[in-house]
Structures are given as structure tokens and as C-alpha cells.
């Protein structure tokens, strides 16, 4: 969450896995989440559930073609995907990827590549975690105990829009549960104790 980025590595060679973990852990804001072998049962399903920010994958570790794998992931989540292969590898191994790490890269090259790919400087500065007016409106209703459908009706929005707003609220505040959001709303006087009591 926030400015931290989680990384999953998919590679069968244990030494390479462990090496990448060490290199990634030295980068600011990068959190190594998990290493996979590529042969796991329903790997893409697992990854979609864990929703990492960055996936570094050796296409040869996968049991399906890289393009199929990437399509499956991109349909559900949108991680940054970096290929991992030999610089002399065949074109069909390299071509599915916009970004590539090579086994022959030294430590500094790997770190520079990952940094350049993952955190454009402007991106870090710009993200102000302030709620928009609309988000505040929705947060109030959530705190008052309304469901997504009820909020949609009341504010003349589609349920889908309400859900998108709620996702953004959760992300901005770092709070996931309704009780947590309610508490935030009370603390910041977005709703009053009286309103809360009246609803029940």
C-alpha cells in the first residue's frame, strides 16, 4: 500500500531467486513478497489474489506461453511485469515483455533498471492522499451504514461508480473495514455521534 511496492519473483533457479530477493530488499520502498517456481497449480489465480505491484518472471519457468500468462494477469490486475532471461535468449522469449532483466546484468544494472521501471520520480511526489469532495460524500454514507446500492440511489450514481470510489477511499486512507472508515469519519467530524445514533 501507499508508496511501497511488493514484488513477486517467478524463477526456478533458487540461487537466482535468492539473489533477486537480496537485491530488491536493498531498494527503497520495495518489499519482496514471494518467490514462485512457475510450476505452481493455478499460478495466475494465486497472483491475482495476492495482487503484487511488480512481477519479475522468467518465461521459461512458466508452464504456459508467457503471452497467455500476461494476458490472464492483465485482465484482472495490472502489475508492472519484468521479464527475466538470458541476453542471448531467443526472440520469442524476450518479445512478450516491455521490460527485461538479463542474467548477465550486474547488481547496479539490475537495481537501476528496477528503479527506472518502477518509480518514475514524479509519480512519488504527486500522489497526495487527500479525499475528493465526492469521496468525502461517499465516506459519510458508508459511516452511516448505507450499502453500496443505497449510496448509489441516494447520490444518483451507478453501483459500479460507488465501488470505484470506495476502492480509492480505502487506498488513500489505508483503511479497509467499514468500522475503520466509520471511526475515521467520526474523528474528522465528517459525521457526528448524533447522526450515528439516529441511524440505529
Amino acid at each position: 500500500m501507499g508508496q511501497f511496492r511488493t514484488v513477486v519473483v517467478i524463477e526456478q533457479n533458487y540461487l537466482i531467486q535468492a539473489g533477486l530477493e537480496a537485491i530488491i530488499s536493498e531498494l527503497p520502498g520495495m518489499v519482496f513478497q514471494k518467490a514462485c517456481l512457475g510450476t505452481e497449480n493455478n499460478l495466475s489465480g494465486l497472483l491475482i489474489k495476492q495482487n503484487p505491484d511488480v512481477i519479475i518472471v522468467n518465461p521459461e519457468a512458466l508452464t504456459e506461453p508467457a503471452t497467455v500468462f500476461l494476458n490472464t494477469l492483465n485482465r484482472q490486475i495490472s502489475p508492472i511485469i519484468i521479464g527475466l532471461t538470458d541476453s542471448k535468449a531467443a526472440e520469442h522469449l524476450k518479445s512478450p515483455f516491455t521490460h527485461l532483466l538479463f542474467f548477465s546484468d550486474n547488481k547496479l544494472e539490475i537495481q537501476k533498471k528496477i528503479r527506472d521501471i518502477c518509480e518514475p520520480v514524479s509519480d512519488r511526489e504527486d500522489k497526495k492522499q487527500v479525499l475528493s469532495k465526492r469521496e468525502v460524500d461517499i465516506l459519510k454514507e458508508v459511516a452511516l451504514g448505507l450499502t453500496n446500492q443505497e449510496i448509489a440511489n441516494k447520490l444518483f450514481l451507478s453501483v459500479h461508480t460507488v465501488m470505484t470510489h470506495r476502492k480509492n477511499i480505502n487506498k488513500k486512507l489505508g483503511i479497509k473495514t467499514v468500522s475503520g472508515l466509520t471511526m475515521y469519519a467520526l474523528m474528522n467530524q465528517l459525521v457526528s455521534m448524533e447522526e450515528m445514533e439516529n441511524k440505529q
Binding site: 486512507l173 473495514t177 475503520g180
Partner: peptide, 10 residues
């Protein structure tokens, strides 16, 4: 688990 997470964050 999500509640504990929120508690820390708050």
C-alpha cells in the same frame, strides 16, 4: 485480520 490492519493504520 483487516480490522487489526485498520487499527494500526488509524
Amino acid at each position: 485480520e483487516a480490522k487489526i490492519f485498520d487499527l494500526k493504520n488509524i
